[in-house]
Amino acid sequence: MYSSRYPPVALKDEEMKYLTIAAGLVMATTAHADTPVLNVYTYDSFTSEWGPGPAVEAAFEEVCGCDLQFTAAGDGAALLARLQLEGAHTDADIVLGLDNNLVAAATETGLFAEHAPLNAEYALPIEWDDSVFVPFDWGYFAFVHGEALEDVPANFEELAASDLKIVIQDPRSSTPGLGLLMWVKAAYGDRAPEIWAGLSDNIVTVTPGWWEAYSMFLEGEADMALSYTTSPAYHLIAEEDGTKASAPFDEGHYMQIEVAAKLASSDQSDLADQFLEFMTGEEFQTIIPTTNWMYPAVTPAEGLPAGFETLNTPSISLLTPAAEAGTVRDAALEEWLSALSQ
């Protein structure tokens, strides 16, 4: 998700639109009173002008005869809290940007509805069979660094022993932050608290979202930031800068599958189903790799864009099954909090 690693430029596109929307509201109510509106809550970087948002909006509005509106509602995990906070009053029809680690917790809230049957051929590294949550991309978490870095650590223990400065995300608000938590837990099990205690003095700060952490890294406030193995592709393809790389860890890399789902309270249920189908289709999936900088959930006909072949592919992939993720998360979060609060 957060791998749209264009430099943090734009104020979110949706915000720019806010003014125009506000201004045009009066006209809209008369002229376009019958145009249905589909509200999609998503994370900040998805809707930025360099993210997938604008292209997706244009493409979907062409086929749906509707007005697709993205709302940047914080970061992945905070999205779920936001929806709980708004409860039945929410305007959202779709939430886009939860992930495999949050599926169990999200299901528990009862806020989401089953989607209409889809027949997508997922290119995911695992079998996906969920009647509520639909995957749209995936990737591996990794620490990204610049060229100047010597002695790139090969695992968490080496990282902890080094005096490298890293920025990470808060697992309670951000899906990469949560992914890191699950990664350490999956790789080290009961030794996780010890690893975190060792990492404690490497962490410059804990940001609420991917965007903040990656921006700090690009600005030179840290040597490495938690991101994705696919992040260097942005610098390579969009900026023709081959100096950024992800550090391969020998204990393996944790996977993330980003998903979207329909709100049970939506008054645009059919339109929402149409969007979810569109999301797994050719057009949307072609947009993803070079805007969200993740692997597409369904490989487009043309395959992956040139440059993706240069990326590290982990020899070991780690993943906690979605059903167990909730329990593991709660315990791991407790460990993380107490290790880092000492």
Binding site: R172, I203, T205, V206, W336, L337, S341, Q342
Partner: peptide, 15 residues
């Protein structure tokens, strides 16, 4: 604040 190490009660409420 720099994460859990530097969290006030007020911030913890927010979180």
């Amino acid at each position: 604040g720099g994460g859990p190490k530097a969290t006030t009660v007020e911030l913890a409420i927010y979180q």
